[in-house]
Amino acid sequence: MVATGTRGAATPAPDSIARRGTPLLEATGITKSFLHVRALDDVDFAVWPGEVVALVGDNGAGKSTLMKVLCGAYQADSGTVRVEGEEVHLRSPRDAIARGIAVVYQDLALVDHRDVAANVFLGREPTRAGMVDKARMVREARAVLDDLKITIPSVQTLVGLLSGGQRQAVAIARAVHQGGRLVFMDEPTAALGVQEQAKVLRLIADLKARGTTVVVVSHNLQHVFHVADRIVVMRGGRKAGERDKGGTTAEEIVGMIVGADRLMPAPAGV
C-alpha cells in the first residue's frame, strides 16, 4: 500500500459536511496507544441527533477502538469528548449509559440461560420489596419489543434458544431500553443469515424513525449504504475521510478504506 498521508482535513469539498446545531456526541483529537502501537491518532468524530452514521475501515483501522473509547470501555490517552456540548469523562460503560450512550456488542453480550425479559433488563433489574419485579420486567420488555416491532413469541423464552437475528434484536432492545439516545452497533449483521440481516437493517431504520441516533461499525458496505446517512472511513488509526451517502459511491469508499482514493481509479466491479 502506498502511504498517501490523507487526512480528513486535507480532503476537499465532499468532506466539509455542515451539520446543524450541537452534535449529540463530539470527540476531538482522540489518541489511544496500546504499548507501542498507536491505535488512534488525533481522530475527530461527531454525530448529530437523528443520524445513522457508519464507521468503516479495514481490520486494525481503529474503528472498534474508537467505538470503545466513545462508549467508555477504553480510556483515551488524549482528546476530549462532549455530549451535547458538555465535556464528559467516560470512565466505564456505566458512565456512558448514564449519558444515554449504549452499545450493542458484536458478540451479542447476552446471557443465554436467562429469558428475554431478564436480558432486556440485564444489570438494571427493577425491584419491589427487595425482590426483582418480574411482572414489570415481563410487561416492559414486551412493550419495548412491540415498540420496535420485534417479533418474539414470549419474553420468557431463554435467549439461548432464539435465532441469531432475534438475539441481535434483544440486544438492540436492551440498548434502547437503557435509555440509549445514541446506540453504537458493532458489526450488527456479521453473524447472521440473509433474512435475519434484512430484519436487523429494518430495525436500524425503525430506530432512526423513532429519533434514536445510531452509529454502525461495519465491514459490509452494502449494508452501510442501505442504512447510513453518512459514512466515516478509518485507516491506520486515523480518519481517512467522511462522506454523505448521497455524495459518494461504494468505489470511492473502498478507495478510502484501502488508501488508494487519489492515486488510482477504483477497479471496475468493486
Binding site: 470501555a73 453480550a109 446471557v111 443465554d112 440461560h113 436467562r114 431478564a118 433489574e125 425482590m131 426483582v132
Partner: peptide, 24 residues
C-alpha cells in the same frame, strides 16, 4: 431466585463479559 444479586450471579457465570458490559 428472587433478588437482583441472584440475577447477577446467574449473569456473571453465564457470560461474564456480557454481565460486565451491562454494568454488573
Amino acid at each position: 431466585a428472587k433478588t437482583r444479586f441472584g440475577y447477577h450471579v446467574y449473569a456473571t457465570g453465564d457470560n461474564a463479559r456480557a454481565a460486565a458490559n451491562a454494568g454488573i
